[in-house]
C-alpha cells in the first residue's frame, strides 16, 4: 500500500498558557492521539491554548473535531484558543469549515501571545 502517515504531538508551557505542537498528518487513524494530547493540554485549565500548526501537513474532520472539543473546554474555563502558522492547505480547510471564525489564526506563536 504506502508509507504510513505519522503525527508527532508535543505539549510545552508558555508564558500565558500551553503550546501544543502538531507535526505530520492528523489522519483519521491518528486522531485519537491528537484528541488525547489536546485533552492533556486542557487539564491545567490554561488561559491560553496555542495550537501550533506550522508542521501540520494534513487534517481531516476528526482532527478538526478534536480541536473544536479543546476549544470548548478552554472556553468553558474562561480561556481562549489560538491557531498558529497553518500552511496554505490547512488554512484552506479552516476557511472552508469556517473554523477561522471560531478561533483566531496567528502567523507566529509570539503574535498569539500578544493577541495581535
Amino acid at each position: 500500500m504506502s508509507p504510513k502517515d505519522s503525527l508527532t504531538t508535543s505539549i510545552s508551557p508558555s508564558e500565558r498558557g500551553v503550546v501544543v505542537s502538531l507535526v505530520g498528518s492528523a489522519s483519521m487513524d491518528l486522531c485519537d492521539q491528537l484528541h488525547k494530547t489536546l485533552e492533556d493540554a486542557c487539564q491545567s485549565r490554561p488561559p491560553l491554548l496555542i495550537i501550533d500548526l506550522t508542521g501540520l501537513e494534513f487534517i481531516c474532520s476528526l482532527g478538526l473535531g478534536a480541536i473544536v472539543v479543546a476549544y470548548l473546554r478552554v472556553q468553558k474555563n474562561g480561556g481562549r484558543v489560538a491557531l498558529v502558522g497553518p500552511s496554505e492547505a490547512i488554512q484552506n480547510v479552516l476557511t472552508a469549515t469556517k473554523l477561522g471564525n471560531l478561533m483566531t489564526i496567528y502567523p507566529t506563536i509570539e503574535d498569539a501571545h500578544t493577541g495581535r
Binding site: G65, A66, V68, Y71, T97, L99
Partner: peptide
Amino acid sequence: DPTTADRLSLPNGRGIMLMNAY
C-alpha cells in the same frame, strides 16, 4: 450545514461538506 453559526462549535458533521468542497 456545519458552517452555520449555531453549528460551528459542534465537533462533528463536517465530512460531507468537505467532500463537496474539495
